[in-house]
Design a binder for these strands. Structure first.
Length: 560
DNA sequence: AATAGGATCAACCGCTTGAAC
DNA sequence: TGTTCAAGCGGTTGATCCTAT
């Protein structure tokens, strides 16, 4: 018989009793599923459980559709299988998850995403349904609390794993590479991808496919000049790594960035390769669809070659992206933004979305445009995809704003180089620990030292490492709302920023906060807006609540 | 004590995969 | 090679429980 070892079982039993006027009523007419026969639906009764258990004990698992016939159960085979697998199997562990199991689930989810069955295989006695339910509730809880889905240790581990994967992948060459195998080896769920028809690219990239594969899409596009001379002759080392990111999304990213590159083409926009050298998350993973419309590709090629300032289709489906989207038949992530949302961010008047709004956006349906212009991972929910999605958001925002910039005829070459550099550092950024916030903060900024155009406002300070807050897209500064950043995100962003500028983690953070926040504030102050910096309270313009939250998250004092 | 809202969990649905034919 | 079917999987739903007010 079934041993009621957990509260949930007891509850379930009670529920079953409640729902079943007669415990022996195995086939009630009330709920019936299709197929013409009256198959019972709803909660299982203990009598049904008994029948099923006896049947399975006698005949073994499998052939579930025969259960109904031979046992008299009015349940479809599917239902029987599920009942057995989730509740009646003798090897099932009852009760709630132990802390060890919980940790394991988090770890596995970081690697596998929503592969509940695979996760269940790693957790003896646990079912996919159990794990799925646990995870979903946990996610909800964390989202409500505004906490990261994955603990820092898992994030770091994932990064390390991914780095190792990159190193491994970067050693590969060849024309047709199946990333899936390699990626599977590190436990990341990457769908099969075949790099076919890479030859198509060779013509205009003037790079071998293997080269192509070693090129981060972001760089490729950014420097499209892609004039052969730029095609990684210079520093064309093997620092570029393969991405463990879903190749589908990479294709989209490439596609997307082709557009960007078109818009941002500048004759002297040199690649800033070093930006990627240590970026574990800037790894190209080129997926090429064999059915891709060559003509469309060619048109992209032409565009690239001509440096023609093609404005990427913003609201319509661009011809170059459409075929890709169709051919790939991609699963689109839920976490993308509508064109209007993206567009609105590009406007100086629009502050960056708060995390709360991001949460909201995550729930938002995709616009067609966004789908076609964004790299699109499967929505499997792996840690990397979480990271990726945040990147794609940044890129989307950048792309849109960049398009706007083109339309505005704003194309200062030197500024462009800087902008490209910054974008590389941000858009193709390795995950700042919480990349979504880190780059959302930094992607907007152009180093003052790089700007030479007289019509560009210069920061009072041009010290390397200090950034003014001139947006790349316009001469206006962004209204970056730090108040809307989670404290941990903000701090992660800061550390990321410090790392980018070569600042040791042990050095004082206050100056960097000043760089990050002070200039912004001083700017706003100039605009008659925000508060001046107040070093005395070490808040740097942050709301006290925000700062206090940071301190709660991180074990250093405000006076650090 | 009543109740509203959130949490939990079991079960279902639709889709995909793979084997058999 | 195409079709059919069983099994598996992941997402979603709905019933119940729990808890705060």
């Amino acid at each position: 018989m079934i041993e009621m070892t957990s509260d949930s079982d007891k509850r379930k039993a009670a529920r079953c009793r409640k729902n079943s006027p007669g415990a022996e009523e195995v086939s009630s007419g009330g709920n019936s599923s299709g197929g013409g026969s009256s198959l019972k639906k709803g909660p299982w009764t203990s009598a049904e459980d008994t029948i099923l258990m006896e049947y399975v004990t006698k005949h073994g698992e499998g052939n579930w559709n025969a259960v109904q016939k031979h046992s008299g159960l009015s349940r479809c085979g599917k239902s029987c299988r599920l009942r057995w697998a989730n509740h009646l199997r003798p090897d099932l562990k009852k009760g709630s998850f132990t802390p060890e199991e919980e940790n394991r689930i988090i770890e596995l989810h970081a690697k596998m995403g929503n592969k509940w069955a695979r996760m269940a295989a790693e957790l003896p006695g646990r079912t996919d349904n159990e794990i799925k339910n646990y995870w979903n509730t946990r996610i909800k809880r964390l989202q409500r609390a505004g906490l990261p889905i994955y603990p820092a240790s898992v994030r770091m581990q994932a990064m390390n794993d991914s780095q190792q994967s990159d190193d491994m992948m970067s050693c590969q060459n060849g024309d047709n590479i199946h990333h899936s195998e390699a990626s599977e080896t590190n436990g990341f769920e990457i769908p099969d991808v075949e790099f076919k028809n890479l030859g198509i690219n060779q013509g205009y990239l003037n790079c071998s496919p293997s080269h192509l594969l070693d090129i981060p899409p972001s760089s490729l596009l950014h420097h499209k000049g892609l004039s052969s001379s730029n095609c990684y002759n210079n520093n064309n080392n093997n620092n570029y790594m393969f991405s463990a990111l879903n190749p589908h999304k990479r294709l989209r990213e490439v596609e997307n960035q082709f557009h960007v590159s078109v818009a941002s083409t500048s004759n002297n926009a040199f690649p800033t390769f070093e930006q990627h050298e240590d970026d574990p998350f800037v790894r190209p993973l080129w997926s090429y669809d064999p059915d891709l419309n060559v003509n469309n590709q060619t048109s992209s090629i032409d565009v690239l070659g001509s440096h023609a300032p093609i404005i990427i289709n913003g609201n319509n489906n661009s011809s170059s992206s459409e075929p890709v989207s169709e051919a790939m038949k991609l699963e689109l992530p839920s976490l993308q933004y509508s064109a209007s949302q993206v567009g609105s961010w590009a406007t100086p008047s629009s502050p960056l979305p708060s995390l709360e709004s991001v949460d909201t956006l995550i729930q938002s349906p995709l616009s067609e445009h966004t789908q076609s212009n964004c790299p699109s991972p499967r929505n499997s929910g792996t840690l990397e995809e979480v990271v990726y999605e945040s990147k794609s958001k940044k890129c989307s925002k950048y792309n849109t704003s960049h398009q706007q910039m083109m339309m505005d005829g704003f194309e200062s070459s030197s500024h462009n180089v800087v902008r490209e550099t910054i974008r590389d550092a941000c858009c193709g950024e390795p995950i700042s620990p919480l990349s979504n916030s880190a780059a959302s903060v930094f992607v907007e900024f152009t180093p003052a030292s790089g700007g030479s155009s007289s019509d560009e406002p210069q920061s009072a300070e041009t010290i390397p490492g200090k950034f003014d807050w001139v947006s790349a897209e316009s001469d206006e500064k962004k209204d970056v709302s730090f108040e809307n950043l989670r404290p941990d995100a903000l701090l992660d962003s800061l550390y990321w920023f410090r790392q980018r500028i070569g600042r040791s983690k042990d050095e004082s953070i206050t100056g960097d906060f000043g760089a990050l926040l002070g200039d912004d504030l001083s700017y706003e102050h100039k605009q008659g807006g925000a508060l001046p910096i107040d070093d005395s309270n070490q808040s740097f313009g942050l709301g006290f609540s925000t700062w206090d939250s940071i301190c709660a998250f991180y074990p250093f004092s405000k006076n650090d």
